[in-house]
């Protein structure tokens, strides 16, 4: 296809405009984070990040987020693999009904269940604990996990499973020694998506958590931004710290993010 130079230039011009539109808010917050707290003072002020980490306690908030996110990812991945293995490779009565029951969870907005969850967990004495963040988010992610891994299990050739069987492997060994190692790409996608959803979650933490020690990073940022004595550069530095883990993960594994969010998007 021959394309005129005019068209070529126009294309890059349009792409450039949208790239700037996408980048500007992020770059501006990054530059703000490096500004001095005293207006008029120049130079790069990396110490803002240190101050956000210690004085504004974002070290503690990020740690809470890490505990919650890693727990949700670990539990979701294991339970999704087990359930998807059953739904994708075995045959038992009610299998499809159970699977579709789980698929419903893909569409239920978490905003709709946060109210009953609060009262249910309060009755169990679980509000204001990590468990009150972990368990509901596992439940929300597991629908996607079971769906995503089932697609993988159904796409693997039956020959692989039969070969493992001939070697004397039972269903447990076949799963963990053969299918899971082969399914690394699908698993990585699942892991990064669940990590991102959990890391960025805000409403559940807003509702469940009252102790400062348990605040997750997004919740900490909301409190910090609401304080009247918060300086703009420190708020920007804290924002960068909150966003950074997912952004770094995204820069290395962007194919997984895009594939998971786009392909896994509409599940029927």
């Amino acid at each position: 296809m021959t394309v005129s130079r005019f068209e070529r230039v126009g294309t890059y011009l349009v792409l450039g405009v949208f790239t700037i539109f996408a980048l500007y808010p992020m770059l501006s917050i990054l530059f703000t984070a490096l500004r001095s707290e005293v207006s008029g003072q120049g130079g790069l002020h990396w110490e803002n990040f240190g101050k956000a980490w210690t004085e504004a306690r974002f070290g503690s908030y990020l740690f809470s987020s890490l505990i919650v996110s890693v727990s949700v990812v670990a539990i979701t991945v294991v339970l999704s693999i087990l359930a998807a293995y059953a739904f994708g490779t075995m045959h038992f009565r009610g299998r499809d009904a159970l699977f579709y029951l789980m698929l419903l969870g893909l569409t239920v907005p978490s905003e709709a269940v946060v109210v009953p969850l609060y009262y249910d967990l309060r009755d169990l004495g679980l509000t204001d604990t990590y468990a009150s963040l972990i368990l509901p988010q596992v439940a929300q992610s597991i629908a996607f996990g079971a769906f995503w891994m089932r697609t993988y299990f159904r796409s693997t050739s039956r020959g692989v499973v039969e070969a493992a069987r001939l070697d004397g492997a039972g269903h447990w060994q076949t799963l963990w020694r053969v299918l899971v190692p082969m399914g690394r790409p699908a698993l990585v996608t699942l892991i990064v998506l669940v990590f991102m959803w959990t890391w960025n979650e805000f409403l559940l933490a807003r509702v469940m958590i009252t102790s400062e020690a348990l605040r997750t990073a997004p919740l900490g940022l909301q409190f910090f931004s609401g304080r009247s004595d918060t300086s703009v550069p420190l708020l920007a530095a804290a924002s960068v710290l909150v966003a950074l883990p997912v952004v770094v993960l995204y820069l290395f594994l962007q194919r997984h993010f895009i594939r998971g969010m786009v392909d896994g998007a509409v599940k029927g």
């Binding site: 996408a22 980048l23 992020m26 805000f202 997004p218």
Partner: peptide, 22 residues
């Protein structure tokens, strides 16, 4: 271009809010 254009999708909304508030 794809990496940059998709980036807003992965940033926590609370951070997006702070950036745009400014």
């Amino acid at each position: 271009f794809r990496t940059v254009l998709f980036l807003p999708q992965v940033i926590a909304m609370v951070v997006v809010a702070v950036a745009w508030q400014r």
